[in-house]
Amino acid sequence: MATPVVIFFSYLLVAGLLVGVSSLILLAIARFRPYRRFLATLAVLGFVAFVWGMCALTQPGYRLLVCYFWLFTAAVVGGGVGCVTMRNVFHAALMLILSLLGVAGYFILVNAEFLAMVQVIIYIGGIMVLFLFGIMVSQNIIGTQLKQNTPQSPWAAICAGVLFMVMFFTGLFMTLKPTLTVTPDVLGNNTGSVGWSLMATYALPFEVASVLLLMAMLGAIILVRKD
């Protein structure tokens, strides 16, 4: 099986991964700030090499799927890294939007089109727009540009790294079996089954959530009201 082509693409894949990940890590370190254009280019090139290798090594029928999967992964990871490293808060929020878009892409890949739309409409259309709006308004009020400044970032990085390693090794040794019997009906009518579970299985929590919304509205009004 180990034809020269397979060996070449395997090396390409591994090299791309190494180059991409190491340049992403360097990007996150403050000392390498002057070279960030170069490092970002390197990360993108490494990623392209990795995806190329991945696609070449998978069966022909799945190549497009794999290509899209890694595209969305790049959006999620790149957006996440950008969100915590960007100095400008506005840019950080834009990177978070990129990351959330990647998650919406994942949902589409697993046939959950309803969730994908909800992700785009609520997270990006609602929450993030409000976020950007808030940043712009508060910058106008306090008169200075908001800078992202986190002195505890090394500790945060260590904690995140440990959590990542735990999850990574769990994922490595885990066998995920489909625990639900997935029928074609569920796959074909995703939105319908979400509606069914909201109105039947989770009807009471769904109603209770309306109390939560009432509470949120009330609390917001009380917080900003002046005597």
Partner: peptide, 28 residues
């Protein structure tokens, strides 16, 4: 409202309703 969340919390037998009830308790 917070008290209503507490009552719901004691009745929840499901992670989803537990989460919603905890939020109803804490937000107020």
């Amino acid at each position: 409202l917070s008290a209503s969340g507490m009552m719901l919390l004691s009745m929840s037998r499901d992670l989803l309703s537990t989460f919603i009830s905890i939020e109803i308790v804490s937000l107020p």
